[in-house]
Every structure is written in structure tokens, then in C-alpha cells.
Simulated scan of single mutants.
Amino acid sequence: MTPPNRGLIGLGVGLAAAGVATAAGVAAGRVNRERTARLSVLAPDGAYAHVPDHELAVIADDGVPLHVEVDEPAADAADAAKPTIVMSHGYTLSLRSWVLQRKALQRAGYRVVLWDQRSHGRSEVADSDSCTIEQLGRDLHRVIEEAAPEGPLVLIGHSMGGMTVMSMADQFPEVVRQRVIAAAFVATSAGGQNMMTLGFGQFVGRLLGRLGPRFLARIGTQQKLVNTARRVGRDVEDLIVDHYSFASPVAQHTIRYTGDMIMGTPLSVMADFLPSINVHDKQSALEQFHGIETLVVNGMQDLLTPPDHSEAIVRLVPGAEHVVVEDAGHIIMLEHPEVINEQFLELVERGMRASAEHIDIGRKPRVRRTVTDLQKRRRVAKARRGSSRGGRSA
């Protein structure tokens, strides 16, 4: 029998937790209504809609089907000399995270290949033992073999996708040396340090690294209950997604779009990948990108892969260009799409020019630039002023 005082304490804790959850829900609802009313201009209807030109299933070397999409340039913009751009998404996301970049690259006349990493998006859920960064590198190689078998390449990876690119380069260096003219590492890490800090520091990070997989695996057995909780507490979920994904105002539609990707990933899959991410170390693989035009991008307020992770990559790749975006979090390509689109287009142009003119990239000085998305700031300020005037006149 439970002692009375322990039962009262438990009841008190339960009521307190319920009160905190209710208060959080009310606060989150208020924030979300503000986004819906004022910031929808940042993600208008149809902004994230896209239909690929081709879809295919690429079979990984262990038999897992991988979902792949291809965008072809318009006939009047097609140029055989232009590279194919292969984009790899991050942990708990999907190829949908690149929707605004794929549109911009296709409009500029490039062929774009995107894929869902194993157990993510529309790719098949794989055995937990195969959910490693090494296997993802082999998966990317298979995608290239099937969807971009010849011609120059540009490799772009976000977060875990950047690790995938490093892993592929480590295992298949000839592909990088012979075909890759440019690479972009976005909000990612070469490893060699604890990856799971979540902004709480290394001590808590090490604790999360040990306990996170077991915790996720345990609650992953109750996925239906988790899905029900999501529907009930959607406002709170949005607040959490916003905090860890972005560092500037975004539209409510962007929060939901991101949250649906993250929480659409089964908790068991999250648990499967965490151990490999936490011990990831591909610093030596970056040697394969020496002499290749390389862009490293991160958000200044990124809680998952802070700027020091990007700085470590830059130190290991001579001639790499480092761009730090102010007021930006981890999902930077949805938060500041115009900035990222511009950086990618400039990177590809630099890579084509370096390849054609045999420029010695290693002799370039390292460049570190801090970029402020002034266009977005103006749009947010204008939206808020317009909403305020509308509220006063109502």
C-alpha cells in the first residue's frame, strides 16, 4: 500500500504537471494565433507544394528500398555541362525539407536528385542494426549510381545528411575526386565531440547520449499513444519544434510542416540512429574535399549543431567558405530560404568555374561571412505593423 504522504506528493506532482501543461498549452496557443494572423506572408498557400518529374525506388546494398525524386530543368534551360545536385536531408526530416531549394535550383536550370534516408520519409523502415552513418554513406552511393550515374556532381547535406556525405566520401573517395565539383555542409558536424547537447552543454549532452536511445525505444513501443498525445497537445508540440528548429519568426504553416516531418518519424527510428550520430567522427573524410569548392553554412543560434561544429569543418578543408546566418536555428533552409538558395546557387557557379578554369581551391583564403536576412526582417516588420493597424481599426 502506498504511504499517504507519498500518495499526496504524487498527486501534487501530477496536478502541478497538469497545470504546467495547461499553462504551456494556453501560451503556445496564443503564440500560434499570432503567427497565423501576422506571419502567414512568410509561407503563403502552396509554398511547400511540389511535384517531382520522376520518382523511383533505389535498392540499397542490403535490400532496403530508398525513395528518390528527380527534378529536371526546363528544356530551354537544360545544359549537359551543368552538374546534377544531390541533396541529403537531416535526422528525423525527409526530402521535403529541401522543397524551397529544389524549386530554386530547378528554375536555375539544374537537375536535382533528392532522397529519403532509410527509415525516414517514404523510404522503407530498416533493421535497427543498419541505422548507422556508415550505411547511410553506402545508401547515398547507391542513389548516385542509379539516379546520377555520370557527369559532374554537387553534394549538399543538412545535419545528418552532411554526415552521410562525409561517410560516402570516406568509403567511396573516387566518386568525390573524379566527379564532385562542389559540396555544401549545412548545420552539420564532422564529429569528434558529443553531438547531443541540445544547447544544455557537454555534461547534459553525454547524459542524453546514454539515456536518449533507451528512452525513445521504450516510449516507441507506445507509438499510438504518442500519436494521440500529439493531436491533443499540438500547440505545445509546435512551441517545442519552434524552439529547437528556428531562431527568428516563422509562419505557423512552417512550424506544422516541420513538426509533421519530425514527429512523423517513428520514435523507434529516432532511437535507432542516435547511437551512431553520437559517436560520429568523419574528420579524416574531409580530406577528400581538399581542392573542391566547399561551402559550410550554419545558423548562429543553432542549438543542435552550434557554430563551433561548422568551424571545425572549415579548419579541415582548405579554401572552404563559411557562412554564418544571424537569427537562424537548425532548420535554416526553411527559416531563411532566400539566403540559402542564394548561397547554393553561388556555390554551384563557383564550382563550375573552378572546374573549367582549373582553379587551385586550396590556395584560396578561408572566408567567413556573417549574413543577416534583411529582406525577411522587413517582411516580418511590415506584417506586424499591418496586423496591428488592422487590430486597432476592428
Rank of each mutant, 00 (worst) to 15 (best):
I331S: 04
L225F: 03
G25S: 15
A16C: 13
I361F: 07
Q288A: 05
W98A: 02
F273H: 01
M196T: 04
R179V: 03
G121V: 11
S387P: 06
R35E: 01
S284D: 14
R122C: 05
L56S: 10
L316S: 13
G14R: 11
A312M: 02
H290P: 01
E338N: 11
S119G: 12
E311F: 04
P149A: 13
D62G: 06
R102L: 06
N5S: 13
H330A: 05
I277R: 03
G121L: 11
M270A: 07
T188S: 15
L207H: 07
V367D: 11
I219P: 04
A16W: 13
V367W: 09
L198W: 06
A37Q: 14
G209N: 10
A28S: 15
E55V: 15
S268D: 11
I144D: 02
P152S: 05
I359L: 10
M333I: 12
I156E: 00
H309R: 12
F172N: 10
D308I: 12
R118N: 14
R379Q: 15
G386A: 12
L95K: 14
L155E: 02
V64H: 09
L274S: 00
H141K: 09
I85K: 00
I156L: 11
H158E: 01
G362W: 08
S355K: 15
Q106N: 11
K364Q: 14
V125P: 00
G299T: 05
D53F: 13
T164N: 10
R138A: 08
L66E: 02
G19I: 10
G220I: 09
R218C: 00
G121Q: 11
F203G: 06
A354I: 12
R378F: 13
A285Q: 03
G264P: 04
M87L: 14
E55H: 15
H336K: 06
Y257M: 00
D308R: 13
A17K: 08
I240H: 01
I361S: 04
R363S: 09
A74C: 04
V112G: 06
R377C: 10
P152C: 00
A75H: 10
A354M: 13
P173V: 10
Q375E: 15
G362F: 08
A328R: 00
M270I: 07
H253C: 05
E335C: 01
S167E: 04
V314L: 12
G291Q: 06
M168E: 03
S159W: 09
V41W: 07
M263P: 01
A183L: 10
R177I: 04
V113I: 14
L93I: 12
G329R: 04
M1D: 14
S248Y: 04
L303P: 13
G220C: 11
D238A: 02
L95T: 14
V64G: 06
D308P: 09
T305D: 03
V58D: 07
Y110I: 00
K224F: 03
I240F: 05
S128P: 05
R392C: 06
A182K: 07
T36Y: 10
I255K: 03
A23G: 15
I59D: 09
V113S: 11
R392P: 03
G192P: 13
T228C: 07
A24Y: 07
T132H: 05
